[in-house]
Simulated assay, not measured.
Amino acid sequence: MTPLRLTVGYVPGVTPAKWARTWADRHRDIPLDLSAVAAAEAADALRAGTVDVALLRPSADTSEMALIPLYEETTVVVVPNDHLLTAADAVTASDLADEPVLVPLDDVVAWTAGRQLEHRPETTRDAIELVAAGLGVLIVPQSLARLHHRKDLTHRAITDAPTCPVSLAVPAGPHPEPVEEFIGIVRGRTPSSSRGQGEPAPKRTAREKTLAKQAARAAAGKVARTPGQAKRGRR
């Protein structure tokens, strides 16, 4: 029999370390493997069974899976350190109106402003290189701007851009116990409320409660009357 284990896929910018640590504390007998997957391949990896669950940014095609929203990321624009947009702490879409915008083929924002350049870099990492070369600006979730940080680049939040959601994707339908346990961990379920714990005791009827109280009082009376007290009572 193949031993139980759980494989968690995650896309660039998403950090599953805290959930992996919690899993290791609670389930030492079930190994958890972390598998980095490209944003465009995460959904297919889950459908193919390459990973058991996936931490991803939802794409247009979420068939054959269920999504559990986790958090929303701020959308930012990446620019050179000496760019005019760095004069403010945040920018708006109108501030980008005249900016050439690079949109990589692995784009996960699905929103743009400014003038989209015809050339589309293959990856976000490639687009970062072009931003550093002064060929345009790049719109990404904040975590990707941090992941690809360079000393010669910075980023600013775009206040009126849509946020970028991150979700836990799991196969549709019933799930094996390890998958259910991981769902509980990312949702913040405590060990005492784990699905692995026993069911709560059924509620007692009014008659059962009355009989229990009577039995408790009777037991208390027997304890209070010591043998010495009993003899004195017979004098």
Results as ranks from 00 to 15, higher is better:
residue 1 M to K: 08
residue 1 M to E: 11
residue 2 T to K: 10
residue 8 V to K: 01
residue 10 Y to S: 01
residue 13 G to L: 00
residue 14 V to G: 01
residue 15 T to Q: 10
residue 20 A to T: 02
residue 23 W to F: 06
residue 24 A to H: 09
residue 26 R to P: 00
residue 27 H to G: 00
residue 31 P to M: 02
residue 34 L to Q: 08
residue 37 V to E: 02
residue 38 A to P: 01
residue 39 A to I: 03
residue 39 A to S: 15
residue 44 D to R: 05
residue 44 D to I: 00
residue 48 A to N: 11
residue 49 G to A: 02
residue 50 T to W: 00
residue 51 V to A: 07
residue 52 D to C: 01
residue 55 L to C: 02
residue 57 R to F: 02
residue 58 P to S: 03
residue 61 D to E: 05
residue 61 D to T: 01
residue 62 T to I: 13
residue 63 S to Y: 02
residue 65 M to I: 05
residue 68 I to K: 09
residue 70 L to H: 04
residue 73 E to Q: 15
residue 75 T to L: 10
residue 76 V to Y: 06
residue 78 V to N: 04
residue 80 P to K: 04
residue 80 P to C: 00
residue 81 N to F: 02
residue 81 N to H: 04
residue 82 D to M: 00
residue 87 A to E: 14
residue 87 A to K: 14
residue 88 A to V: 04
residue 94 S to G: 08
residue 94 S to H: 12
residue 97 A to V: 10
residue 98 D to I: 07
residue 98 D to K: 12
residue 99 E to D: 07
residue 99 E to Q: 15
residue 100 P to C: 06
residue 103 V to T: 14
residue 103 V to E: 02
residue 104 P to R: 11
residue 107 D to L: 07
residue 107 D to K: 03
residue 108 V to N: 03
residue 108 V to F: 07
residue 109 V to S: 03
residue 113 A to R: 07
residue 114 G to P: 09
residue 115 R to C: 02
residue 115 R to I: 14
residue 116 Q to F: 00
residue 118 E to A: 14
residue 118 E to G: 09
residue 118 E to V: 15
residue 119 H to Y: 13
residue 120 R to L: 05
residue 121 P to R: 07
residue 121 P to T: 04
residue 122 E to C: 04
residue 124 T to F: 03
residue 126 D to T: 05
residue 126 D to H: 13
residue 126 D to V: 05
residue 128 I to D: 05
residue 129 E to H: 12
residue 129 E to C: 04
residue 133 A to N: 07
residue 133 A to I: 06
residue 137 V to G: 03
residue 141 P to G: 09
residue 141 P to S: 12
residue 142 Q to F: 08
residue 145 A to W: 10
residue 146 R to G: 14
residue 147 L to D: 09
residue 150 R to V: 05
residue 152 D to L: 10
residue 153 L to G: 09
residue 154 T to D: 14
residue 155 H to L: 10
residue 157 A to K: 11
residue 159 T to G: 03
residue 160 D to Q: 10
residue 163 T to C: 11
residue 166 V to E: 01
residue 166 V to A: 11
residue 166 V to H: 03
residue 170 V to L: 12
residue 172 A to V: 11
residue 172 A to F: 08
residue 172 A to P: 01
residue 172 A to M: 11
residue 172 A to E: 15
residue 173 G to I: 08
residue 175 H to D: 08
residue 180 E to I: 07
residue 180 E to S: 10
residue 181 E to G: 00
residue 181 E to D: 12
residue 183 I to V: 13
residue 184 G to W: 01
residue 186 V to K: 04
residue 186 V to G: 03
residue 194 S to L: 02
residue 195 R to Y: 05
residue 195 R to E: 08
residue 196 G to R: 14
residue 196 G to N: 14
residue 200 P to A: 13
residue 202 P to H: 09
residue 202 P to Q: 06
residue 203 K to R: 13
residue 204 R to D: 11
residue 205 T to Q: 07
residue 207 R to Y: 03
residue 207 R to H: 10
residue 207 R to F: 08
residue 210 T to R: 14
residue 211 L to K: 12
residue 214 Q to F: 12
residue 218 A to N: 07
residue 218 A to C: 03
residue 221 G to F: 06
residue 222 K to F: 06
residue 224 A to Q: 11
residue 227 P to E: 08
residue 227 P to R: 14
residue 229 Q to K: 14
residue 230 A to C: 07
residue 231 K to V: 15
residue 234 R to H: 13
residue 235 R to M: 10
